[in-house]
Design a protein around this nucleic acid. Structure first.
Lengths: 237, 237
DNA sequence: GACTTACTGCGATCGATGTTCGCAGTTCTG
DNA sequence: CAGAACTGCGAACATCGATCGCAGTAAGTC
């Protein structure tokens, strides 16, 4: 009945030298989970499914991870590791932060399940910490409180997530139309037809057509830039 | 085998005149779910639990709702109905939008589960539509594209959610410390102690102490205001 | 080299949950 | 009054996360 002194998976040693060598490691579990989630969605990341894709048994996974949530944490951190920090440190904080935001967008678009996984979780693995460090480094010379900088980075992250979610939602209706979205579209059509809600009707009429003339990249850059300058000032330094 | 022509619950009639009068209605289901979620968290909103709290059987709920997700949709819309739109239409869009943001914050703080429920869902019930209409009405005289206005409202909503989440997270560790947060704190302490990540260390050192001198309301107002002025210009008109 | 210790994979199983099926009863329609 | 269309719901099913305990294996200890 020895209490596990550390509860965070990032502080728990992966192996402690005794017994047979483990067949896998945390990275392989995470990779298997990511592969499953990429192709079949987050709901497909079942302990049984992951085990089967590794040629193992469900119970075996619990040698590497104490709970499914921990597996998701591993997956999140693994895709966070796809970020690349080259070309940063230009001295222009706005450009640096925008570059980080773009990479975040790329990660979200590559792994749509990430938004769902991040939803009710506060994921702070090593890679997330590294990201935060780089984001704050970009603001090293900025004349603002640490608190304000932290706020700005946090708000930027949430806006990046929100914009990416919108893009993903508007993107997949190609074929995988998830049925609840179609129901929503149906309801919106009814709302418009009802005549009440004139403003919403006008907005939808002009916002919908053909994804607009402006490409998604441009919209993203524009919004992120405006949010950041609103929070941190206009001087790109 | 008659296909249900409409899939959205908001277009499906609640009752169609035949048979015995239903014991409950959608509002009562939603209210029961909200009560459960408010006191015991979203995970406690089980079909069985809701049924029991209504003095009914689990299978009976499916007479009112085709799936648990629909029940959550009802709950979300019900708490969205707590918003009050009095005092709006002042002619100053910034003040109007800020008032809406504040109400959103209040709803989140009153119903912490709402953040989890909203996470992987795109909730567009009648109340959400009403909210959108009012938000867009506040921007009626603003010289910006409909698209830009829609973007601004959307970004504001996601920032409101993000700030509220941060507040809730920082608030409940009073006693209900959810254990994963404690694990995260533990890991962060280790990161700080490691010496790498100097920027993060500095930021945490200054951001942590005693919630700072600035009250949460002020921080919220300041961030929302700056984000909105960044997106829509400085003139409060 | 034998014994202990601490691990490994995993079959079997438990408890909980969302959901379905079908039946008996009830009310409206024609 | 007959049938259609509903009502609540007991019983069950499928699936999932997680646990327990056992047999096997490698390291530490003397």
């Amino acid at each position: 009945m020895t209490d596990q002194p550390t509860t965070s998976i990032w502080l728990r040693p992966e192996r402690s030298g005794r017994g047979p060598a483990p067949t896998f490691d945390r990275d392989r579990l995470a990779a298997a989970g990511v592969a499953l989630a990429d192709t079949h969605g987050l709901a497909a990341v079942t302990m049984r499914a992951v085990a089967q894709s590794l040629g193992s048994a469900p119970a075996s996974l619990y040698r590497y991870v104490t709970t499914r949530d921990e597996l998701l944490e591993l997956m999140i951190d693994q895709v966070n590791g796809e970020m690349c920090y080259d070309g940063l440190g230009t001295g222009r904080w706005l450009g640096d932060l925008l570059a980080l935001a773009r990479q975040g967008r790329g990660t979200y678009l590559r792994h749509p399940w990430l938004l769902d996984a991040l939803a009710s979780r506060s994921p702070l693995g090593p890679e997330a910490v590294g990201y935060l460090e780089h984001a704050l480094a970009a603001l090293a010379d900025h004349p603002a409180t640490w608190r304000t900088r932290l706020e700005a980075v946090s708000v930027m992250n949430s806006v990046v997530a929100s914009l990416s979610r919108a893009e993903i939602t508007r993107q997949l209706p190609g074929q995988t139309a998830p049925q609840w979205q179609q129901a929503q579209q149906e309801y919106l059509a009814d709302v418009v037809a009802s005549g009440r809600h004139p403003y919403l009707t006008a907005a939808l009429a002009q916002a919908a057509p053909a994804a607009g003339p402006e490409p998604a990249d441009r919209i993203f850059d524009r919004i992120i830039t405006r949010v950041l300058t609103g929070l941190l000032g206009a001087d790109g330094v």
